[in-house]
Design a protein around this nucleic acid. Structure first.
Lengths: 347, 347
DNA sequence: GCATCTTCTGCTATCGTTTGCAGAAATTTC
DNA sequence: GAAATTTCTGCAAACGATAGCAGAAGATGC
């Protein structure tokens, strides 16, 4: 392996001069710099990043901890974050938690050990104590989920608005028996979305019926199972809303397998819009999220935190230190006004 | 920051003893080990990985270089690879190339600089010379695409079989005017898939018609544009096959916008099967790929390479150093026997 | 009781890079 | 021409962890 000593020997200067030349230090003669750069290129020199880190400071690594990158939402976010970080000269370490606090801890530990510059995380429901302690040594921001025990900026969507939009849409169409499948209620996304759903019902003098609601950890089969159980009941709900990106596909597959007519017998609102949702039946009405924008803002937010740490008092514009994005409703053919005959039929 | 010296001071031993105790070295007294571990936990000690790397060796980082992680294919692969690497104690650095040789070089340089353990890459069409030189310093394997200038094991699918399956299916249904939209022909995936398509046609005494074929770099709008152009011609082809995961969705959207009846007026075969392809119209017949398995094998292959480097002559079972997986055809409703009236209609 | 062996621990050099300080060389000033 | 100044370069000490070597302490054998 080529080191600066090798370059120094070739050029005939001291290693320290090589270091300064490569760092473009002003007190090095231009001729020397040129010769050093020439020799470095010639020898194929690549700096030894770990050695640099010996003198303190952080590496150019940024951690990205998500539950599952197969989920469209997170893969899109990973793309935005990775692009944003690469532009700023950082490399992204992708850590998959599978919603396990143990894995989360493992990844955070690895990042602290590698002296990462920071971490963007989608916290698990109950992060380990050790995780919280380790996070204090590492600039970090929360993505999508906001955890009370983590005291860090949050970049996400207006969770309450997402389900409020969906619920109001269904209520406006006359639905009163609305089923709800959402994520783990110990997560901010799970609880806030469900509470907003309940409030929207309450505004119409209704209450969420427990037998029509399921809250899951998002295991592989959860959404399909929940859909089948809820729709097997009598009376069957007239509408179903999904409150998580990972829940939508399986639920739609299950509804399809049950051969229930949509929207005639059942109205459906999906979550996290994509082109494919336009293909299902007459298209699935769904809650759209500006995923790329949220993730981009999140990356900028973390990068802004670095600058903040280095020098507090300069006047360059700073990215927002927190941000909440508004979801929007994409209306398609899976929702329809509740027909009077419908109620009779299912009753 | 807590170092090994701090622990040494607390316990009352030398730093080297602490190092040995934490590494569970056999020549350290059990009592000493216990006291050291106790103190380390107490102080919240986290090893300084960069310092370890000073004495040579590689870090626990593995690079994963893909063009675009929003693509279902690559996000699934990233999941499999990341899980496999995490199990073996490695962390994955996700690098997005956007099919740019410059970005590819940047990522490889970063990995070499960080003394990464290895890299799994989906090579760009023409990697830079510098990239090839750098790769020699880093164990690496090729994923999906196989590049002649990179002398490293390859893990991918039987590209020829993928389009052969699709073409034979369409030919068997009586189609003779088959349109083809594929990826960049400078890539192994692009060229091999197309050549197999041509051969399949040749076996029926047919030739691929240039005006029905498009080969693109896979830019955002490419697939949709190509679809519109090909289907605007007279006579219009009676079948269309897509030969890339990233091409399928846009092409299907374009066909839908053109209001062409599928499969009555046009048969379609998609690429890289997913649940959503079952939703489009009567379902899209497509070439399925065992993505998770390929990616898993690829990760194992790279990890096996590490073992191989460390000690050549042990008799533990080794994972395959190369692997090619067979694609399979998933038949759905987007393909149908060519009706005689059909030929008249489009002529 | 002495030699020998075993068991455990400390000293120290080392990895590659950076940086403060000092000093050499070149240039300018009076 | 000497002094002062500027411009450039080298020395050496860090940073944190590890491992070879040596040595201390204790156990064992005769």
């Amino acid at each position: 392996m080529i080191t600066i000593k090798d370059i120094a020997r070739v050029v005939g200067v001291a290693p320290s001069t090589v270091a300064r030349a490569l760092a473009d230090h002003p007190h090095v003669h231009e001729d020397t710099k040129a010769r050093v750069r020439e020799a470095a290129a010639q020898l194929g020199y690549v700096a030894h990043s770990p050695a640099r880190l010996m003198r303190g400071g952080t590496s150019s690594l940024i951690g990205l901890l998500v539950p599952d990158v197969r989920n469209d939402f997170y893969s899109t976010a990973a793309q935005a974050i990775s692009e944003g970080c690469a532009t700023a000269g950082f490399q992204v370490v992708l850590g998959l938690t599978s919603d396990s606090a143990a894995r989360e801890l493992g990844h955070v530990h690895g990042l602290v050990s590698a002296r990462a510059a920071g971490v963007i995380l989608v916290p698990t429901a109950r992060p380990a104590k050790a995780t919280l302690v380790l996070l204090e040594r590492l600039p970090h921001v929360q993505f999508i989920r906001r955890n009370r025990s983590i005291h860090a900026p949050w970049f996400g969507i207006d969770d309450a608005a997402s389900t409020r939009l969906a619920a109001q849409h269904l209520l406006g169409l006359g639905h009163r028996q609305i089923a709800y499948i959402g994520g783990d209620r110990r997560l901010s996304t799970g609880s806030e979305r469900f509470e907003a759903f309940e409030k929207a019902l309450a505004a119409h003098g209704l209450r969420a019926q427990p037998e029509y609601c399921a809250h899951g950890p998002g295991g592989v089969a959860f959404s399909a199972t929940a859909t089948r159980q809820i729709l097997a009941q009598t009376p069957r709900p007239t509408a179903l809303m999904l409150a998580g990106s990972h829940l939508t596909v399986d639920a739609l597959e299950a509804v399809r397998a049950l051969r229930i007519a949509v929207p005639d017998e059942l109205s459906i609102v999906g979550f996290n819009d994509s082109a494919a949702l336009g293909w299902w039946g007459a298209g699935v009405t769904s809650v759209g999220l500006p995923v790329f924008d949220i993730a981009g803002a999140c990356a900028s937010g973390l990068l802004g935190k670095f600058r903040q740490q280095r020098n507090a008092g300069d006047d360059i514009p700073r990215p927002p230190s927190e941000a909440m994005f508004a979801p929007f409703l994409v209306e398609r053919g899976s929702t329809a006004r509740l027909a009077p005959r419908h109620t009779r039929k299912s009753a």
